[in-house]
Simulated scan of single mutants.
Amino acid sequence: MTDQPTGRILIIDDSEHNRYLLSHQLHRRGHTVVTAIHGRQGLEYAQQQPFDVILLDLMMPEMDGFTVLDQLKRDPQMRHIPVIVISAIDEIDDVVRCIDSGAEDYLTKPINTTLLHAKVHACLERKRLRDQEQAHLMAIRYELDLGRRMQADFLPERLPHIAGWEIAAAFVPAREVAGDFYDAFLLPDQRLVCLLGDVCDKGVGAALFMALTRSLLRAFAEQAVLNGDDPLRAVAMTNEYIARHYHASRTFSTIFCAIIDPASGTVRYVNAGHPVPVLIRTDGGVEMLLTTGPAVGWIRNAHFSTETTTLEIGDTLFAYTDGVTEARAPNGTLFGEDRLLATLDPSLGGNNNRLEAVQQAVMAYTGRQQPEDDLTMLVVCRRSAA
């Protein structure tokens, strides 16, 4: 019998004779047993101590078994303790009522010791399986929370402050960790780098690739400037690194990378398969910053061309991930670029107002409290001459 699982068992029964018989049998199998003489005392014990199984008599003074069972199942801390109800053989209707209310099993008086041990053993096994499941889920939640906090450390703590310019970003992950990323930082020569990316997968794997891709882009861009090279080469260098070392994973990222000269407003950019950013002119005109190369990490020796435009005073650059335009209404239709452009009303004023307006419009369109895909946006506005 030594290989049988043992546990802490609470017996709630007003009969001293029943308590003795049950305790004696359970002690013989190595269980730790606590007894309560009525329902109220049993509830107090259950609240104060951990138990693996409760044996509950139905007919008791002070508080009957039905009330005890109801209160056990209402309490989040006790509701998962298996309860075996004990009844007279002619109280089967009461047993059915208890099973409907959450009792695990039942025994009839007089107690058959073989059934007692079999049912207690089954309850202990189910309790242990559930405890293991809960411990596993808690470990996963901890790991995801740790991943979320680590991922937040990879996003910029604060955005650059440049006289005459306004920069803002929004990041709304669909899960604990996300595959989207954004970055904005100043190069040693004081040019502004704006990055926005979206890893093709979701979950922890995508978050890891997000961290890798963002770190490579920043490091290669800064290295290029120090070497007197074009920082936009960081996109091609990142592509080669990922395609060479992680080709088997078939993971890739769409990336928009722009280098902005704050003094002149010149914008040089690479759009690596990313949803098309928009440049909103102060006169209401719109310029689309089209794709200039494939997604990063998909193929080696990919060609990424560079395009140039200019942000005049009053112009706004708005970049986003596909979680915005590919958000779906309940009928399956996409939010789309037209709705996005209609939401970017110049009368909204500051960049944060625009970001909030887009986020609210997407949530209202989908009818969801949380996005189905990550929502990430970066907006840069030239307010005045630097």
Rank of each mutant, 00 (worst) to 15 (best):
M1I: 04
M1C: 11
G7I: 08
R8Q: 13
R8S: 15
I9L: 14
L10S: 04
L10A: 00
D14T: 12
Q25D: 02
G30Y: 03
A36W: 08
A36G: 07
G39W: 04
Y45L: 02
Q48V: 06
I54A: 12
L58I: 09
M60R: 04
P61S: 15
P61N: 08
E62K: 13
F66S: 03
T67K: 15
L69S: 07
D70P: 00
R74H: 12
Q77G: 09
P82Q: 10
I84M: 05
I84Y: 07
I86Y: 08
A88H: 04
E91Q: 15
D93Y: 06
A103Q: 05
T108D: 08
N112Y: 08
T114V: 01
T114R: 12
L115C: 05
L116C: 06
V120H: 00
A122Y: 03
K127N: 09
D131S: 15
Q132K: 01
A135N: 12
H136L: 15
R141I: 08
L144Y: 02
L146Q: 06
G147P: 10
Q151S: 01
P156E: 11
L159R: 03
P160M: 11
P160N: 12
I162H: 12
I162W: 07
A163L: 09
W165C: 02
I167W: 11
A168K: 15
A170C: 06
F171N: 08
A178G: 12
G179W: 04
A184P: 12
L196W: 07
C200W: 12
D201R: 10
V204I: 13
A206L: 11
M210T: 08
A211I: 04
G228Y: 04
D229F: 06
D229W: 01
L232V: 13
L232S: 03
M237H: 15
N239C: 04
E240S: 11
H245L: 13
F252E: 03
S253A: 08
I255V: 15
A258T: 07
I259C: 10
V267W: 04
R268S: 14
L279D: 09
R281C: 13
R281I: 05
T282Y: 06
T282G: 07
G284P: 10
G285F: 04
E287G: 03
M288A: 09
L290M: 05
T291C: 09
T292A: 00
G293Q: 07
W298R: 10
N301H: 09
H303A: 03
H303L: 11
H303C: 10
F304W: 08
E307D: 11
E307Y: 07
T310R: 13
G314D: 12
T316S: 15
T316M: 09
F318V: 11
Y320V: 06
G323V: 04
G323I: 00
V324S: 01
T325I: 14
E326P: 07
A327P: 10
A327N: 10
P330T: 10
T333Q: 09
T333G: 03
L334R: 11
L340E: 00
L340I: 11
D345F: 03
P346K: 07
N351H: 00
N352D: 14
N352T: 14
L355T: 05
Q359R: 13
A361N: 01
V362R: 11
V362L: 02
M363T: 04
A364T: 12
A364P: 03
A364H: 14
R368A: 03
P371R: 00
D374E: 10
D374C: 05
V380D: 07
C381Q: 15
R382V: 06
R383F: 03
R383M: 11
A385L: 11
A385C: 02
